[in-house]
Simulated assay, not measured.
Amino acid sequence: MVFFALFLMMLGNGIIIPVFPYYVKSMGASAFQLGLLLTVYALCQFIFAPIWGRYSDKVGRKPLLMLGITGYAVSFILYGLAHAIWLLFVARIAGGILSAAVMPTAMAYIGDVTTEEKRGSGMGLMGASMGLGMVMGPALGGILSGISFTFPFFFAAGLAIVNVITIFIFLKESLTPEERMQQQVEVTDDSGISSILGELRTPLVQFFIMLFLASVAHSMNEATYALFMQNKIGMGAKEAGWAFMVAGIVMVILQGVLVGKMINRLGEKKTIVIGLSAMAVGLALLLYSFNIITAIIFLAVFCCGMGLIRPATSSAVSKGAANQGRSLGAMQGFDSLGRVVGPAFGGFLLDLNWSYAYIGAVIVALLAVICFKAYDRHHSRAAGC
Protein backbone atom coordinates (compact mmCIF):
# COMPACT_ATOMS: atom_id res chain seq x y z
CA MET A 1 0.00 0.00 0.00
CA VAL A 2 2.84 2.40 0.78
CA PHE A 3 4.22 1.80 -2.72
CA PHE A 4 0.87 2.82 -4.24
CA ALA A 5 0.83 5.96 -2.07
CA LEU A 6 4.32 6.88 -3.31
CA PHE A 7 3.26 6.23 -6.90
CA LEU A 8 0.32 8.65 -6.57
CA MET A 9 2.54 11.21 -4.87
CA MET A 10 5.11 11.14 -7.66
CA LEU A 11 2.39 11.10 -10.32
CA GLY A 12 1.25 14.45 -8.93
CA ASN A 13 4.80 15.75 -8.70
CA GLY A 14 5.54 14.52 -12.18
CA ILE A 15 2.55 16.37 -13.60
CA ILE A 16 3.95 19.75 -12.54
CA ILE A 17 7.64 19.11 -13.36
CA PRO A 18 7.51 20.02 -17.08
CA VAL A 19 5.08 22.90 -16.45
CA PHE A 20 6.64 24.65 -13.45
CA PRO A 21 9.66 26.32 -15.16
CA TYR A 22 7.50 27.77 -17.95
CA TYR A 23 4.79 28.79 -15.45
CA VAL A 24 7.36 30.68 -13.38
CA LYS A 25 8.91 32.22 -16.48
CA SER A 26 5.47 33.42 -17.59
CA MET A 27 5.45 35.60 -14.46
CA GLY A 28 8.70 37.24 -15.52
CA ALA A 29 11.09 35.24 -13.33
CA SER A 30 14.76 34.70 -14.19
CA ALA A 31 16.60 31.37 -14.02
CA PHE A 32 18.07 32.49 -10.70
CA GLN A 33 14.59 33.19 -9.27
CA LEU A 34 13.44 29.77 -10.45
CA GLY A 35 16.43 28.32 -8.64
CA LEU A 36 15.51 30.22 -5.48
CA LEU A 37 11.98 28.80 -5.60
CA LEU A 38 13.46 25.31 -5.62
CA THR A 39 16.01 26.29 -2.96
CA VAL A 40 13.51 27.64 -0.41
CA TYR A 41 11.48 24.43 -0.72
CA ALA A 42 14.56 22.30 -0.14
CA LEU A 43 15.65 24.48 2.79
CA CYS A 44 12.34 23.81 4.53
CA GLN A 45 12.78 20.09 3.89
CA PHE A 46 16.34 20.22 5.22
CA ILE A 47 15.11 21.68 8.49
CA PHE A 48 11.92 19.64 8.90
CA ALA A 49 12.69 16.18 7.42
CA PRO A 50 14.74 15.07 10.48
CA ILE A 51 12.06 16.44 12.82
CA TRP A 52 9.25 14.58 11.05
CA GLY A 53 11.36 11.42 10.70
CA ARG A 54 12.15 11.40 14.41
CA TYR A 55 8.53 12.21 15.26
CA SER A 56 7.37 9.22 13.18
CA ASP A 57 9.41 7.01 15.53
CA LYS A 58 7.23 8.30 18.38
CA VAL A 59 3.70 8.53 16.93
CA GLY A 60 3.84 6.07 14.04
CA ARG A 61 4.35 6.24 10.29
CA LYS A 62 0.76 6.53 9.05
CA PRO A 63 -0.12 9.94 10.57
CA LEU A 64 3.08 11.50 9.22
CA LEU A 65 2.50 10.14 5.72
CA MET A 66 -0.98 11.67 5.74
CA LEU A 67 0.39 14.99 6.98
CA GLY A 68 3.12 15.11 4.34
CA ILE A 69 0.85 14.32 1.40
CA THR A 70 -1.66 16.87 2.67
CA GLY A 71 1.21 19.35 2.38
CA TYR A 72 1.55 18.50 -1.30
CA ALA A 73 -2.18 19.13 -1.84
CA VAL A 74 -2.03 22.51 -0.10
CA SER A 75 1.02 23.65 -2.05
CA PHE A 76 -0.40 22.54 -5.43
CA ILE A 77 -3.59 24.50 -4.81
CA LEU A 78 -1.59 27.58 -3.83
CA TYR A 79 0.50 27.26 -7.03
CA GLY A 80 -2.63 27.26 -9.15
CA LEU A 81 -4.04 30.31 -7.37
CA ALA A 82 -0.80 32.31 -7.46
CA HIS A 83 -0.70 35.46 -9.58
CA ALA A 84 2.72 36.75 -8.49
CA ILE A 85 6.14 35.28 -7.75
CA TRP A 86 5.91 36.06 -4.01
CA LEU A 87 2.83 33.84 -3.77
CA LEU A 88 4.80 31.01 -5.34
CA PHE A 89 7.37 31.44 -2.57
CA VAL A 90 4.59 31.17 0.03
CA ALA A 91 3.38 27.96 -1.62
CA ARG A 92 6.89 26.52 -1.76
CA ILE A 93 7.52 27.24 1.93
CA ALA A 94 4.22 25.72 3.07
CA GLY A 95 4.70 22.68 0.84
CA GLY A 96 8.32 22.22 1.88
CA ILE A 97 7.54 22.23 5.61
CA LEU A 98 4.69 19.71 5.43
CA SER A 99 5.81 17.45 2.58
CA ALA A 100 9.17 16.94 4.31
CA ALA A 101 7.39 14.27 6.35
CA VAL A 102 6.83 11.91 3.43
CA MET A 103 10.20 10.50 2.38
CA PRO A 104 11.86 9.73 5.75
CA THR A 105 8.59 8.25 7.01
CA ALA A 106 8.08 6.11 3.90
CA MET A 107 11.65 4.82 4.05
CA ALA A 108 11.26 4.05 7.76
CA TYR A 109 7.98 2.24 7.02
CA ILE A 110 9.75 0.02 4.49
CA GLY A 111 12.55 -0.54 6.98
CA ASP A 112 9.97 -1.63 9.56
CA VAL A 113 8.37 -4.25 7.33
CA THR A 114 11.46 -5.73 5.60
CA THR A 115 14.37 -7.84 6.79
CA GLU A 116 17.95 -6.68 6.25
CA GLU A 117 18.30 -9.16 3.39
CA LYS A 118 15.24 -7.68 1.65
CA ARG A 119 16.01 -4.06 2.55
CA GLY A 120 17.80 -3.23 -0.71
CA SER A 121 15.00 -4.73 -2.79
CA GLY A 122 12.42 -2.89 -0.69
CA MET A 123 14.13 0.45 -1.25
CA GLY A 124 14.46 -0.39 -4.93
CA LEU A 125 10.72 -1.11 -5.20
CA MET A 126 10.07 2.18 -3.43
CA GLY A 127 12.13 3.93 -6.09
CA ALA A 128 10.37 1.98 -8.83
CA SER A 129 6.95 3.02 -7.52
CA MET A 130 8.03 6.64 -7.55
CA GLY A 131 9.61 6.17 -10.96
CA LEU A 132 6.36 4.78 -12.34
CA GLY A 133 4.67 7.98 -11.23
CA MET A 134 7.41 9.88 -13.03
CA VAL A 135 6.73 7.85 -16.18
CA MET A 136 3.11 8.91 -16.36
CA GLY A 137 3.19 12.31 -14.64
CA PRO A 138 5.37 14.48 -16.90
CA ALA A 139 3.69 13.38 -20.13
CA LEU A 140 0.28 13.94 -18.53
CA GLY A 141 1.43 17.33 -17.26
CA GLY A 142 2.57 18.33 -20.71
CA ILE A 143 -0.84 17.40 -22.13
CA LEU A 144 -2.77 19.14 -19.33
CA SER A 145 -0.73 22.31 -19.83
CA GLY A 146 -2.49 22.60 -23.19
CA ILE A 147 -5.65 23.48 -21.23
CA SER A 148 -3.84 26.09 -19.14
CA PHE A 149 -0.65 26.45 -17.12
CA THR A 150 -2.66 26.33 -13.86
CA PHE A 151 -4.84 23.28 -14.58
CA PRO A 152 -2.05 20.70 -13.93
CA PHE A 153 -1.58 22.08 -10.40
CA PHE A 154 -5.25 21.63 -9.48
CA PHE A 155 -5.27 18.15 -11.03
CA ALA A 156 -2.19 17.20 -8.96
CA ALA A 157 -3.86 18.57 -5.82
CA GLY A 158 -6.85 16.32 -6.46
CA LEU A 159 -4.57 13.29 -6.71
CA ALA A 160 -2.93 14.20 -3.39
CA ILE A 161 -6.31 14.44 -1.67
CA VAL A 162 -7.30 11.01 -3.03
CA ASN A 163 -3.96 9.69 -1.77
CA VAL A 164 -4.57 10.92 1.78
CA ILE A 165 -8.01 9.30 1.85
CA THR A 166 -6.58 6.02 0.51
CA ILE A 167 -3.85 5.95 3.17
CA PHE A 168 -6.36 6.67 5.92
CA ILE A 169 -8.60 3.79 4.85
CA PHE A 170 -6.18 1.08 3.71
CA LEU A 171 -2.64 1.58 5.09
CA LYS A 172 -1.79 -0.35 8.25
CA GLU A 173 0.52 1.19 10.84
CA SER A 174 3.95 -0.51 10.87
CA LEU A 175 4.90 0.36 14.48
CA THR A 176 3.05 -1.24 17.37
CA PRO A 177 2.09 0.91 20.39
CA GLU A 178 4.83 -0.82 22.37
CA GLU A 179 7.45 0.06 19.74
CA ARG A 180 6.29 3.67 19.67
CA MET A 181 6.51 3.84 23.47
CA GLN A 182 10.05 2.46 23.35
CA GLN A 183 11.02 5.08 20.76
CA GLN A 184 9.63 7.82 23.00
CA VAL A 185 12.03 6.67 25.69
CA GLU A 186 15.04 6.33 23.38
CA VAL A 187 14.65 9.30 21.03
CA THR A 188 15.88 12.64 22.28
CA ASP A 189 14.10 15.93 21.65
CA ASP A 190 16.90 17.81 19.94
CA SER A 191 16.14 20.07 16.98
CA GLY A 192 16.20 18.92 13.39
CA ILE A 193 19.50 20.63 12.65
CA SER A 194 21.03 19.25 15.87
CA SER A 195 19.88 15.79 14.83
CA ILE A 196 21.60 16.20 11.46
CA LEU A 197 24.82 17.43 13.06
CA GLY A 198 24.66 14.55 15.53
CA GLU A 199 24.54 12.04 12.67
CA LEU A 200 27.83 13.47 11.38
CA ARG A 201 29.49 11.76 14.36
CA THR A 202 28.31 8.32 13.22
CA PRO A 203 29.83 5.99 10.58
CA LEU A 204 26.91 6.94 8.32
CA VAL A 205 28.55 10.31 7.63
CA GLN A 206 30.17 8.88 4.49
CA PHE A 207 26.76 8.33 2.93
CA PHE A 208 25.37 11.66 4.09
CA ILE A 209 28.19 13.75 2.58
CA MET A 210 28.06 11.77 -0.66
CA LEU A 211 24.29 12.18 -0.91
CA PHE A 212 24.58 15.92 -0.27
CA LEU A 213 26.99 16.35 -3.19
CA ALA A 214 24.97 14.05 -5.47
CA SER A 215 21.85 16.02 -4.60
CA VAL A 216 23.59 19.31 -5.47
CA ALA A 217 24.45 17.96 -8.92
CA HIS A 218 21.00 16.42 -9.38
CA SER A 219 19.14 19.59 -8.42
CA MET A 220 21.36 21.74 -10.64
CA ASN A 221 20.10 19.66 -13.57
CA GLU A 222 16.51 19.68 -12.29
CA ALA A 223 16.49 23.48 -12.02
CA THR A 224 18.07 24.21 -15.38
CA TYR A 225 17.20 21.32 -17.74
CA ALA A 226 14.03 22.82 -19.26
CA LEU A 227 15.47 26.31 -19.73
CA PHE A 228 18.82 24.98 -20.97
CA MET A 229 17.14 22.72 -23.54
CA GLN A 230 14.71 25.46 -24.55
CA ASN A 231 17.65 27.68 -25.42
CA LYS A 232 19.79 24.93 -26.96
CA ILE A 233 17.26 22.96 -29.04
CA GLY A 234 13.92 24.76 -28.62
CA MET A 235 12.37 22.24 -26.20
CA GLY A 236 8.89 23.17 -24.89
CA ALA A 237 6.73 21.94 -21.98
CA LYS A 238 5.29 19.01 -23.94
CA GLU A 239 8.71 17.80 -25.13
CA ALA A 240 10.10 18.20 -21.59
CA GLY A 241 7.21 16.03 -20.39
CA TRP A 242 8.19 13.26 -22.82
CA ALA A 243 11.82 13.53 -21.75
CA PHE A 244 10.96 13.07 -18.09
CA MET A 245 8.58 10.23 -19.00
CA VAL A 246 11.39 8.29 -20.69
CA ALA A 247 13.66 9.02 -17.73
CA GLY A 248 10.94 7.63 -15.46
CA ILE A 249 10.71 4.43 -17.50
CA VAL A 250 14.45 3.94 -17.09
CA MET A 251 14.12 4.48 -13.33
CA VAL A 252 11.27 1.96 -13.03
CA ILE A 253 13.18 -0.76 -14.87
CA LEU A 254 16.40 -0.06 -13.00
CA GLN A 255 14.92 0.18 -9.50
CA GLY A 256 12.20 -2.41 -9.91
CA VAL A 257 14.37 -5.11 -11.47
CA LEU A 258 18.09 -4.45 -11.17
CA VAL A 259 19.01 -2.33 -8.17
CA GLY A 260 18.07 -4.90 -5.52
CA LYS A 261 20.13 -7.56 -7.29
CA MET A 262 23.07 -5.17 -7.67
CA ILE A 263 23.00 -4.30 -3.97
CA ASN A 264 22.83 -7.97 -2.97
CA ARG A 265 25.67 -8.90 -5.31
CA LEU A 266 27.98 -5.86 -5.15
CA GLY A 267 26.96 -4.20 -1.92
CA GLU A 268 25.68 -0.69 -1.35
CA LYS A 269 29.02 1.09 -1.72
CA LYS A 270 29.98 -0.30 -5.13
CA THR A 271 26.45 0.32 -6.38
CA ILE A 272 26.73 3.94 -5.26
CA VAL A 273 30.07 4.45 -7.04
CA ILE A 274 28.60 3.05 -10.28
CA GLY A 275 25.63 5.39 -9.87
CA LEU A 276 27.79 8.46 -9.26
CA SER A 277 29.89 7.65 -12.34
CA ALA A 278 26.80 7.25 -14.54
CA MET A 279 25.40 10.52 -13.22
CA ALA A 280 28.61 12.42 -14.08
CA VAL A 281 28.68 10.91 -17.58
CA GLY A 282 25.03 11.80 -18.18
CA LEU A 283 25.54 15.41 -17.08
CA ALA A 284 28.53 15.76 -19.39
CA LEU A 285 26.62 14.30 -22.33
CA LEU A 286 23.72 16.73 -21.84
CA LEU A 287 26.07 19.55 -22.84
CA TYR A 288 26.29 17.96 -26.30
CA SER A 289 22.55 17.48 -26.92
CA PHE A 290 21.68 18.53 -30.49
CA ASN A 291 18.01 17.44 -30.80
CA ILE A 292 15.11 16.12 -28.72
CA ILE A 293 16.23 12.49 -29.07
CA THR A 294 19.73 13.09 -27.73
CA ALA A 295 18.38 15.30 -24.92
CA ILE A 296 16.12 12.43 -23.84
CA ILE A 297 18.78 9.71 -24.14
CA PHE A 298 21.38 11.69 -22.19
CA LEU A 299 18.83 12.52 -19.48
CA ALA A 300 18.10 8.78 -19.20
CA VAL A 301 21.82 8.06 -18.65
CA PHE A 302 21.87 10.66 -15.87
CA CYS A 303 18.75 9.14 -14.29
CA CYS A 304 20.36 5.70 -14.30
CA GLY A 305 22.92 7.12 -11.90
CA MET A 306 20.37 8.65 -9.53
CA GLY A 307 18.30 5.47 -9.78
CA LEU A 308 21.19 3.55 -8.22
CA ILE A 309 22.38 6.12 -5.69
CA ARG A 310 19.23 6.78 -3.67
CA PRO A 311 17.99 3.21 -2.98
CA ALA A 312 21.54 2.00 -2.25
CA THR A 313 22.06 4.88 0.19
CA SER A 314 18.67 4.32 1.83
CA SER A 315 19.46 0.63 2.24
CA ALA A 316 22.88 1.31 3.79
CA VAL A 317 21.55 3.92 6.21
CA SER A 318 18.55 1.81 7.20
CA LYS A 319 20.81 -1.16 7.99
CA GLY A 320 23.27 0.94 10.00
CA ALA A 321 20.74 3.06 11.92
CA ALA A 322 19.90 2.71 15.60
CA ASN A 323 16.65 4.67 15.08
CA GLN A 324 15.47 4.39 11.49
CA GLY A 325 13.18 7.41 11.49
CA ARG A 326 15.87 9.66 12.95
CA SER A 327 18.73 8.48 10.70
CA LEU A 328 16.63 8.34 7.54
CA GLY A 329 15.24 11.77 8.42
CA ALA A 330 18.81 13.06 8.74
CA MET A 331 19.66 11.43 5.40
CA GLN A 332 16.70 13.19 3.83
CA GLY A 333 17.94 16.39 5.46
CA PHE A 334 21.31 16.10 3.74
CA ASP A 335 19.51 15.32 0.48
CA SER A 336 17.42 18.45 0.98
CA LEU A 337 20.49 20.51 1.88
CA GLY A 338 21.92 19.60 -1.53
CA ARG A 339 18.68 20.82 -3.08
CA VAL A 340 19.07 24.06 -1.13
CA VAL A 341 22.43 24.74 -2.77
CA GLY A 342 21.95 23.20 -6.22
CA PRO A 343 19.01 25.07 -7.80
CA ALA A 344 20.16 28.60 -6.91
CA PHE A 345 23.76 27.74 -7.84
CA GLY A 346 22.66 26.17 -11.13
CA GLY A 347 20.35 29.08 -11.96
CA PHE A 348 23.11 31.57 -11.18
CA LEU A 349 25.56 29.74 -13.47
CA LEU A 350 22.95 29.43 -16.21
CA ASP A 351 22.38 33.19 -16.15
CA LEU A 352 26.15 33.68 -16.58
CA ASN A 353 26.51 31.22 -19.44
CA TRP A 354 24.25 28.46 -20.79
CA SER A 355 26.98 25.82 -20.38
CA TYR A 356 28.30 26.75 -16.94
CA ALA A 357 25.51 25.02 -14.99
CA TYR A 358 26.28 21.61 -16.48
CA ILE A 359 30.03 22.02 -16.27
CA GLY A 360 29.58 22.84 -12.58
CA ALA A 361 27.27 19.86 -12.05
CA VAL A 362 29.82 17.46 -13.59
CA ILE A 363 32.51 18.80 -11.24
CA VAL A 364 30.26 18.33 -8.20
CA ALA A 365 29.38 14.75 -9.24
CA LEU A 366 33.05 13.86 -9.63
CA LEU A 367 33.78 15.43 -6.24
CA ALA A 368 31.15 13.12 -4.72
CA VAL A 369 32.98 10.07 -6.12
CA ILE A 370 36.33 11.32 -4.84
CA CYS A 371 35.04 12.08 -1.33
CA PHE A 372 33.19 8.76 -1.07
CA LYS A 373 36.24 6.73 -2.08
CA ALA A 374 38.64 8.85 0.01
CA TYR A 375 36.62 8.12 3.16
CA ASP A 376 37.06 4.37 2.61
CA ARG A 377 40.79 4.70 1.97
CA HIS A 378 41.27 6.85 5.09
CA HIS A 379 39.45 4.37 7.33
CA SER A 380 41.20 1.38 5.75
CA ARG A 381 44.56 2.93 6.63
CA ALA A 382 43.38 3.83 10.12
CA ALA A 383 42.21 0.26 10.68
CA GLY A 384 45.58 -1.05 9.53
CA CYS A 385 47.51 1.10 12.00
Rank of each mutant, 00 (worst) to 15 (best):
A49C: 05
V341M: 06
G384I: 07
L144V: 11
E173C: 02
R119T: 13
L38P: 10
S380I: 09
S129N: 06
T39W: 01
G137I: 11
K261T: 13
G267L: 04
T39D: 07
G28H: 05
I359S: 04
M103P: 15
F46R: 00
M262A: 13
A139Y: 12
R339C: 12
F334R: 02
I85C: 06
L65F: 04
L204D: 12
L144Y: 05
V205P: 08
L38Y: 10
V273R: 03
M245H: 04
L211M: 12
L36E: 09
S194Y: 08
A160Q: 07
I292E: 15
Y358S: 04
P343Q: 05
E173S: 00
P203D: 11
W354Y: 14
A321S: 11
C44A: 13
V257N: 05
E186P: 01
E239Y: 00
S30W: 06
G133S: 10
I263Q: 10
T150C: 09
L78D: 14
L81H: 02
G80Q: 09
Q324V: 10
N163Y: 00
G35R: 00
G248D: 09
P203F: 03
I15M: 14
F334H: 07
K373G: 13
G35M: 03
E222T: 00
R61Y: 07
S121P: 10
Y109F: 15
Q206N: 12
G360R: 00
T188G: 14
N291A: 06
S56Q: 03
A368V: 01
P63K: 00
L276D: 11
G68N: 07
A157W: 07
M306P: 11
M10V: 11
G146M: 15
S277H: 06
I249L: 14
V205I: 10
S277R: 02
S30I: 10
R339V: 09
M229V: 03
Q183S: 15
M262Q: 08
I249F: 13
M306T: 14
R180F: 08
V246P: 01
M103I: 13
Y109E: 13
L78W: 00
L6A: 13
F334Y: 14
S174P: 03
I77E: 09
N323E: 11
I15E: 14
A316I: 13
A128K: 02
I167F: 07
M245S: 15
G68A: 09
